[in-house]
Every structure is written in structure tokens, then in C-alpha cells.
Simulated assay, not measured.
Amino acid sequence: MSTIVSKEEAHKLIDQLPANATWDDLMHEIYVREAIEKGLEDSKAGRTKGVADIRKKYGLPE
């Protein structure tokens, strides 16, 4: 599910980039922002797993 982004938000994101930023830099920033927003939505909705569960899933020590 995509989040609606206002032009103002897009401009703020672009304005944060250095003057020599590339398209790849912009795409990276968009990806990171989207991932953070999705994670926050999941957290608010209770769609999370405990650290112990993740460690067990991947065979990591607790």
C-alpha cells in the first residue's frame, strides 16, 4: 500500500540533498523514508515481533 505524499514533503526531501546529488541519491532517500514510514505504521498497528523471536528464527544467540 502506497502512502500519499504531498508536493511539500517531496520538496523538503529534495531540498535536504546536497547540490551534487544524483538520481540514485534521491531514490535511496525515498526508499529509506518509505521503509521507515511503513515500519512505524506496522509498529502502531501491533504488527511486530520480539527480538527473541527474530533471533530464534535466524539461529542467533540471545
Rank of each mutant, 00 (worst) to 15 (best):
H28F: 13
I30L: 08
G46V: 03
I4L: 13
R55E: 11
H28D: 13
I4T: 15
I4C: 08
D25R: 04
D25Y: 02
I54E: 08
L40I: 11
G46C: 03
K56C: 03
R33T: 06
S2K: 10
G59N: 01
I14G: 06
V5P: 03
K38S: 06
E62Y: 06
E62I: 04
A21L: 03
T3K: 12
K38C: 02
E34M: 05
M1I: 04
E9S: 06
A21C: 04
G46K: 03
G50S: 15
D24S: 11
K56Y: 04
M1C: 07
W23S: 15
G46Q: 03
I54L: 15
A21Y: 05
D24Y: 07
L13M: 10
L60D: 01
H11M: 10
L40D: 08
I30V: 12
G50Y: 08
N20M: 05
L60F: 07
P18T: 04
S2C: 12
A21F: 06
S43G: 14
Q16W: 08
K7I: 14
E37Q: 07
S6R: 12
R47F: 01
H28P: 01
G39L: 00
K7P: 10
V51P: 02
L60N: 02
K44I: 05
Q16E: 15
T48P: 04
K49T: 05
I4Y: 09
A35C: 08
G59F: 00
E41K: 11
V51C: 10
M1H: 06
S43N: 12
L40M: 12
G46R: 03
I30T: 01
A35W: 03
L26R: 01
